[in-house]
Design a protein around this nucleic acid. Structure first.
Length: 640
RNA sequence: GCCGGUGUAGCUCAGUUGGCCAGAGCAGCUGAUUUGUAAUCAGCGGGUCGGCGGUUCGAAUCCGUCCACCGGCUCCA
């Protein structure tokens, strides 16, 4: 007998060799039908794998993230089985579960492709195979046999994978007519997969290396119930409506023009308003915290970026040098503001008493992003950073860094980004050739960030290889409508640029010392921040950010003078308000104001003129009834 | 940059296997209507069918190439 401990602390005895599925059956038959996999001593196992010792056991179903992962991973095998049937000779590589579904990377061989038109027949095949209720059978296999198996199939990808595995640690899984190198676990049988949707097909490099073969990646998602697929489809439709590219056009915030160039956004009046409000908000906070605004030009001599190291690192892949009429004179579009700010620091000799020096600029920079990377306002070639560089003494670093964390948190809280990931981006552990500066400085910088994040009680994840070439970063990641993660705020510690620019201050000892730099941008870039803001709010901005806060809607021409009066009152109180004087019915004016997502829609007609009131309609809510203008002003003030 | 897809009026889209002057709705303009909580009615104007080159008696439709956009991959100072 073995003692099985459940998550609630209960302990029950079972025969040795009991499986998760057996345990589920002993509890309830309906539960047994839902079990996807089982967590045994904190390791996820097949539900039918035998348990030989005392263990803590948690049965995993569709409700558990790990249960979903098992389900989707098994679905990837099902996809592979279908592809094997439909595309003979296809070579399989890897097919993992992801956050929202699964994919399989395959090599179809020369000249063959999969298109979205092919999806229905693949989905049909998958469901057909699923209905066979095939079990996933696990088998241990020796390294030699595993290699022989795939050599015979001519699958160099699998043999490469196997070469990296330990003998005795290799397992195959077989369901129906498909066998795959796989460590598992899998769901009890394919019949649990009731609904399948292939979502897209894309190229993906083998092992993520662009120098190696490009494989075909087929993405999909699957569900244990058809109704869940419908729900998923509905959510995808909803997400499309939040897309900042669509809303940006609809709300007349920004635009792109082929004639101006790819990735070069044009800010329309309303988008500019929104952006200015955000800038004003941050500038005010920064003023309170001792930042000083500076301004620098959009270009600088090539030499500036040779000093900073940017030219050596990115010169080839950037906008190319700008020539002048003078021979040999070369300028570059600025890719970063920091070199300019270093030169500002060098305009005087600073006393330690004057540090930290916090220089801030909404600086527009230009980077030649790869064409395939451009994406609405999320990834552009000309963008404005809410940049600042803090020059401080080494013993001020930690305190300053923590202050910046507070500022980023203030920004995120005020803008409603409750969900974010704080990521500590460190050097690549193997390849250090990508970075400038000494190991010693990197160590100090990385430790400072880890310490500051810990002191602030931030929950962080560490990502190696994500650092900037001159220093490590603390990045704040937020997701867009399509669940993709983007870096917004960033704080970086830099010992290297002060050295390269030979920055100095005079210490209490009357000696010259080298300051440390903090690069920081709470928004990151105005463009990206605003795109994520649009998607998070679905364009329903809080009142203080809305480009148009109110629109007065006269019932007919007769009431335009009164509407103008109301509009003037609002303007006197610094609200952004307009009057819709078009010769249209009130229903139409309300509709158009709603499409533009104007928060306060103020209807005025005979009754309102008589009572000296306005009929308030709050977008997203509806009719609030008529109130006096003073009451309206109070209502709006309370919302600011 | 790579893989796959898309590109018709300001916007959303129709346009059969290549075949008369390329269509609709919305938006715009003009006029009528003077309106009470998500689209009033009528008339009018508007398109080098993404660009360039080719095949053909004939190309929005077929081929090539470039550009832009979409989803991934790689990259992201």
């Amino acid at each position: 007998m073995v003692n099985i401990t459940f998550p609630d602390g209960n302990v029950r005895q079972y025969e040795e060799g009991v499986s998760g599925l057996d345990i589920a059956k002993s509890l309830s038959n309906s539960l047994a039908k839902k079990v996807l996999s089982v967590k045994v001593n904190n390791e996820v196992w097949d539900a039918n794998r035998t348990i030989m010792t005392d263990a803590t056991v948690q049965l995993l179903t569709w409700r558990d993230t790990e249960g979903k992962t098992t389900f989707w991973h098994s679905s990837a095998h099902l996809l592979a089985e279908a592809l094997q049937a439909l595309y003979p000779g296809v070579k399989f590589t890897i097919g993992p579960a992801i956050d929202n579904g699964f994919y399989y990377d395959i090599d179809l061989g020369e000249g063959r492709t999969i298109r979205t038109e092919d999806f229905p027949k693949i989905e049909k095949k998958m469901l057909e195979l699923a209905r066979q209720k095939n079990t996933f059978d696990r088998s241990d296999i020796s390294k030699a046999d595993a290699l022989a198996h795939y050599e015979q199939l001519g699958n160099e990808y699998k043999t490469e994978l196997i070469s990296g595995l330990e003998d005795g640690d290799i397992t195959f899984y077989k369901q129906g007519g498909f066998t795959d190198l796989c460590k598992g676990p899998h769901i009890p049988h394919t019949g649990l997969v009731k609904a399948v949707k292939l979502t897209n097909v894309a190229g993906a490099y083998w092992r993520g290396d662009e120098k190696r073969n490009q494989l075909t990646r087929v993405y999909g998602i699957s569900f244990p119930k058809a109704s869940e697929l419908e729900e998923y489809n509905r959510l995808v439709e909803e997400a499309k409506k939040r897309d900042h590219r669509k809303l940006g056009a609809q709300l007349k915030l920004f635009a792109f023009s082929e004639k101006v160039g790819a990735g070069l956004p044009l800010w329309l009046p309303k988008g500019t308003k929104l952006r200015q409000i955000l800038q004003d908000f941050l500038m005010e906070e920064q003023r309170k915290q001792g930042y000083e605004m500076v301004m620098t030009p959009h270009i600088g001599k090539q030499d500036l970026y040779i000093t900073s190291g940017h030219f050596a690192k990115y010169g080839e892949d950037s906008f190319q040098p700008i020539q002048t009429p003078k021979k040999g004179e070369v300028y570059l579009l600025k890719p970063m503001n920091c070199p300019h700010h270093c030169e500002i620091f060098k305009t005087s000799l600073w006393s330690y008493r004057e540090l930290p020096k916090r220089l801030a600029e909404f600086g527009t920079v230009y980077r030649y992003e790869q064409s395939g990377e451009l994406n609405g306002l999320l990834r552009v070639r000309g963008f404005t950073q809410d940049d600042a560089h803090i020059f401080c003494m080494p013993d001020q670093l930690l305190e300053e860094f923590k202050k910046v964390i507070d500022l980023v948190m203030l920004v995120f809280t005020r803008l409603g980004f409750g969900e974010f990931t704080a990521q500590i981006s460190l050097r690549d552990q193997e390849d250090r050739s990508k970075y400038i500066g000494s190991d010693e400085n990197w160590e100090k910088a990385e430790q400072a960030i880890i310490q500051a994040a810990e002191d602030k009680g931030l929950k962080t994840v560490i990502e190696y290889g994500e650092a900037a070439f001159y220093g490590p970063k603390l990045d704040f990641m937020v997701k867009d409508a399509l669940n993709r993660s983007w870096q917004l705020g960033t704080i970086q510690v830099d010992y290297n640029l002060p050295e390269r620019f030979e920055l100095e201050y005079v210490g209490a000892d009357n000696q010259k010392h080298r300051p440390v730099m903090i690069h920081r941008a709470p928004f990151g870039s105005m463009e990206r921040f605003i795109s994520v803001l649009i998607e998070n709010t679905a364009g329903n901005f809080p009142l203080w950010l809305a480009p148009d806060q109110a629109v007065v809607l006269p019932i007919s021409e007769k009431f335009i003078p009164y509407a103008n009066e109301i509009n003037e009152r609002l303007k006197q109180h610094n609200y952004r308000s307009t009057v819709d004087i078009r010769n249209e019915k009130i229903g139409r004016k309300i509709r158009d104001a709603s499409v533009q997502k104007v928060p306060y829609q103020l209807v005025v007609g005979e009754k309102e003129v008589t009572n000296q009131e306005v009929a308030v309609r709050r977008h997203g809510e509806g009719d609030r009834g008529s109130v006096a203008v003073d009451a309206l002003l109070e209502m709006m003030a309370a919302e600011m």
